[in-house]
């Protein structure tokens, strides 16, 4: 960011917004926005409560299971679509519809199918995350240089070695990008799923705090969630940078 000819680091703009939040909160103009400082105090107190910890564990569990399934299925389907035209023709239209469809609308249907419980949340995470992983994996596979594949074949690679030692690694930058985007969508999925099911984990807490207009705790919950999502995405991005570095020249 450039301001009055000076380079201002990203952190600086974040601090500006924090200050604005604090000022608006202290002025008391908006009932929905308490000062940032009291939100942070609330967050600090909240993470020490058993209620939050068990809610976080339940949430983390649904999220991890849903994401693990999304990554496995997403990569497998993406590889098949990238390599075989028939599979691509068969699934392409659905993947492209679902990747941009308003999936939240499906959650009530999922509730009918999977009951009002964790299974529905896991399926929601899966459905939110899987499509972008499929698409990015497919793109990665299609961009693997043909000569690398011919190299593997000419030096006698079995189909298994060809994928394990060459194709998947060559597509790794795109696959990781897909997983990173999938993670962010998965966080959305776990919150929306829990909100709509509304009796477990983070969703239950959101419901509780917003119903009682406990805004400090409500925002504290939100900030923790955002921070967790950003941390995960930053961690993957870090790995991506490393991989891109090695994949710089093919």
């Amino acid at each position: 960011m450039i301001l009055f000819g000076y380079r201002v680091p990203m952190m600086a703009s974040l601090i500006v917004w924090c200050v604005i939040w604090e000022v608006v909160g202290r002025s008391g103009a908006l009932f929905l926005i308490p000062p940032l400082s009291s939100v942070l105090v609330a967050a600090f107190a909240m993470v020490q409560t058993a209620t939050w910890q068990s809610a976080a564990l339940v949430t983390l569990h649904s999220f991890s299971v849903g994401m693990a399934l999304a990554i496995l299925v997403g990569i497998a389907l993406g590889v098949l679509m990238g390599r075989f035209k028939a599979v691509d023709d068969l699934f392409g239209i659905w993947v492209n519809i679902f990747v941009s469809a308003p999936l939240s609308a499906l959650v009530p249907v999922l509730m009918i199918l999977f009951g009002i419980g964790e299974t529905t949340v896991i399926v929601t995470v899966f459905l939110f995350a899987v499509w972008i992983i499929v698409l990015d994996t497919r793109a990665g596979i299609q961009h693997v240089p043909n000569s690398l594949i011919e190299m593997g074949r000419s030096y006698g690679a079995s189909p298994f070695a060809l994928y394990g030692k060459i194709v998947l690694l060559a597509a790794l930058p795109e696959i990781l990008a897909g997983i990173r985007l999938g993670l962010v969508r998965g966080v959305k999925g776990v919150v929306i799923g829990q909100l709509l099911v509304s009796i477990i984990g983070y969703g239950e807490l959101f419901e509780l705090y917003s119903r009682s207009f406990d805004m400090e705790n409500f925002w504290a919950l939100t900030i923790i969630l955002f921070a967790a999502a950003m941390l995960m995405s930053a961690a993957i991005e870090h790995v991506e940078k490393k991989v891109d570095y090695y994949a710089g020249v093919r």
Binding site: P145, S147, L148, E150, Y155, L169, Y246, A247, R250
Partner: peptide
């Protein structure tokens, strides 16, 4: 019994 040398090298960048 045959080995290939590729025009674009075909090295694994990783």
């Amino acid at each position: 019994e045959r080995a290939f040398v590729f025009q674009d090298f075909a090295l694994m960048p990783w």
